[in-house]
């Protein structure tokens, strides 16, 4: 019974981690059809922002929840203004340019800070699951992931901004005819996605550590989750994270973390073969 409890908790944390990893990407890809291959490095920047701010005496909660999203959000805004906006509609070129950005960021951070930086340790303690110990920080991650998913859903579904964003996503020309400026919406969306990614990076910093090439480990997972989710990216990311999180955690428990990840990626490739439009291309099509 205790073991089931622990497994269940671990599965929840795995799902939450995937949601955190993928949500920012989902915003950018789902809204703008931009495949941002520097996504992993945006996460890395978020983690670095948290680690550096905390090491310079900022309260860890402030650095995670405020500094990281702010820094990476502003960075995303700059990236969009400096070169993404010249590449709208050229999907492969965007992939290439963002991949260049990804390499450049890894190189830049390595040059500035070296290959290691003092990380942050997880705040909060543990709690007992029968004979086992679960980490309270894991619980906090689950809460954060749920709040981010719910918040984004509410933002897109209930606010005026969300309505404009969804309209621009569906038909930019019509939206422009009605007086919305699609370039400004794209800019805001890219910054929002970047900020969410930065927040995720900050939140995951105590768990994953901080290193210049940490993003590489995340980028395939994040993409496959977003693509597996499909067009309605908030619901889709939630559903795909749930599916892949369960597969990952069970395979990890049976074998090793490496094969857990391999099982996740393989099942995702198969899912894309079976449902090329992702989960929400077939089910829950009316959600966001």
């Amino acid at each position: 019974m205790d073991l089931i409890g622990l497994t269940g908790f671990n599965i929840l944390v795995a799902i939450a981690t995937l949601v955190l990893l993928a949500l920012g990407l989902g915003v950018i890809y789902g809204m703008m059809r931009i495949i941002n291959l520097a996504h992993g490095e945006f996460l890395m920047l978020g983690a670095y922002a948290t680690a550096l701010a905390t090491n310079h005496g900022v309260n860890i909660w402030i650095s995670m929840l405020i500094v990281s999203p702010l820094v990476v959000g502003i960075f995303g805004l700059l990236v969009e203004r400096l070169f993404i906006r010249f590449l709208y509609g050229r999907m492969i070129d965007t992939m290439l340019a963002t991949w260049g950005l990804s390499l450049a960021l890894i190189g830049l951070v390595t040059t500035l800070f070296g290959t290691t930086v003092q990380g942050v340790s997880a705040p909060l303690g543990g709690f007992a699951i029968g004979r086992y110990q679960g980490s309270l920080y894991g619980l906090f991650l689950v809460a954060c992931a749920a709040a981010m998913l719910g918040g984004l859903y509410a933002l897109l579904r209930t606010t005026r901004f969300g309505l404009i964003v969804r309209a621009t996503m569906q038909n930019p020309n019509m939206a422009a005819a009605l007086g919305v400026s699609p370039p400004r919406i794209y800019m805001a969306t890219f910054a929002l996605g970047s900020a969410l990614t930065g927040l995720a990076g900050g939140l995951l910093a105590p768990v994953s550590g901080t290193a210049p090439n940490m993003g590489v480990a995340f980028v395939a997972k994040s993409f496959i989750t977003v693509l597996g989710g499909g067009a309605a990216f908030v619901t889709g990311t939630g559903l795909a994270s749930t599916l892949f999180g369960i597969i990952d955690e069970i395979a990890t428990e049976r074998t090793t973390p490496v094969f857990g990840e391999v099982a996740l990626l393989l099942s995702a490739v198969i899912l894309i073969r079976v449902l090329p439009q992702g989960i929400t291309g077939r089910f829950f099509r009316r959600s966001t």
Binding site: F83, A97, W99, G100, L103, A104, I106, G107, L108, T111
Partner: peptide, 9 residues
């Protein structure tokens, strides 16, 4: 990586 990335962009 920095230089390779900049060349690519």
């Amino acid at each position: 990586n920095l230089i390779v990335g900049v060349v690519l962009i």
